[in-house]
């Protein structure tokens, strides 16, 4: 019997893998992918809890999270392309313009 707790634990595991990826990786594109993984984990728990309470509202939140994720990816990848044009690298250790 698969309960809602199974889905919540799986969502927590996926979220943690995303957090570790953000902390470990040096490539901003892969960091973006890890952020997408964390968004997906949050969406999964939204839908699991929505079904748990028999409501469709959890899926509404997921629709808006999807739209925000699409907007975030388009702007973020544009910023990465712009940084690569000006500095010829996108390693997050070498791009430290805002560090005083």
């Amino acid at each position: 019997m698969i309960t809602t707790s199974h889905y919540l634990v799986l969502s927590a595991i996926l979220f943690t893998i995303g957090v570790i990826g953000v902390l470990v990786k040096r490539n901003p594109i892969v960091i973006f992918m890890c952020v997408e993984l964390m968004l997906n984990a949050a969406n999964l728990s939204f839908i699991a809890l929505g079904r748990h309470f028999g409501q469709v509202n959890g899926q509404m939140y997921v629709i808006f999270a999807l739209a925000v994720a699409a907007a975030e990816v388009s702007v973020g990848l544009g910023i990465i392309v712009a940084i690569f044009r000006s500095k010829e690298t996108i390693n997050v250790d070498e791009v430290n313009l805002m560090k005083s």
């Binding site: 907007a71 990848l77 544009g78 910023i79 392309v81 712009a82």
Partner: peptide
């Protein structure tokens, strides 16, 4: 409001990626 957000994202992506 999401439609406005997507419009802003499109404009922002174009401006960011332009030379």
């Amino acid at each position: 409001a999401t439609s406005i957000l997507l419009l802003v994202a499109v404009i922002g992506a174009i401006i960011m990626a332009k030379r």
